[in-house]
């Protein structure tokens, strides 16, 4: 891929898209293509094909739809998490209900993007992930707060991890629609640090949460 070089002079990072709906796939492709520094390596329309392409193409980023005709996109996220090269999975879904979000984050997804959000933002999200951040939408932040926030009573025993005050603050700001740099300015820290906090929240969730219990609690209405 020597021909493809971004403006900064480095090689372009590759993106694999696993999405069964052609129009969405087209919009995702368009969004990725129009972003400097990244390029679409391939598009898969089934889980099976997606996982095969994942190993064949060894992309840096994989965009996964959750609802695939032959299975859950979570499987692809797990495959990416186990890969022997650096690959970050981002889940793209029309729905942002808690249980799915947590399932994805627990499987190791670096971010969760709602299709009803602006898909053209996806390029920015991918760049954020490449820089070590974790993209997060206000709705997802709100879900995270609902589950992890210490202010909620009764606190589900399933959630063992606790957010620091700073993390809670950041999530609350994200849920209200603030951007990283704005949050950073409010708190007197850099946008990158804000991103690190969000990544840290994701990782906490990954290790400290009993997924089934969260789903149960979510359905029962405790959360």
């Amino acid at each position: 891929m020597d021909a493809d070089r971004d403006l900064r002079g480095g090689p372009e990072e590759t993106v694999l898209i696993i999405e069964d709906r052609a129009d969405i796939a087209a919009r995702l492709t368009e969004a990725v293509t129009s972003t400097d520094g990244v390029t679409v390596a391939g598009v898969a329309t089934t889980l099976d094909q997606g996982i095969n392409l994942l190993y064949d193409l060894r992309p840096r980023i994989v965009l996964v739809d959750i609802g695939l005709p032959d299975g859950s996109g979570i499987e692809a996220v797990k495959a990416a998490a186990k890969a022997d090269w650096t690959v970050d999975a981002l889940v793209v879904s029309i729905f942002g209900d808690e249980s799915r979000v947590f399932e994805a984050l627990q499987a190791g997804a670096k971010g969760y993007i709602l299709k009803s959000g602006a898909l053209r933002q996806i390029g920015d999200d991918i760049l954020a992930v490449l820089e070590g951040g974790s993209p997060i939408s206000p709705a997802i932040a709100r879900h995270l707060l609902a589950v992890l926030n210490t202010g909620m009573e009764p606190k589900p025993e399933a959630v063992e991890c606790h957010l620091t005050d700073r993390e809670t603050e950041i999530l609350r700001a994200v849920a209200r629609g603030y951007k990283r740099h704005e949050i950073g300015a409010q708190l007197g820290i850099s946008a990158g640090t804000v991103g690190n906090h969000i990544t840290s929240i994701y990782r906490k969730l990954e290790v400290g949460t009993n997924m089934e219990a969260v789903m149960r609690a979510t359905k029962i209405g405790v959360l």
Binding site: A118, R120, G177
Partner: peptide, 14 residues
């Protein structure tokens, strides 16, 4: 409502 406004911002930002 604030999260809804946040989502609105995310979509309109572009």
């Amino acid at each position: 409502l604030t999260t809804l406004l946040g989502m609105l911002r995310t979509r309109l930002e572009g």
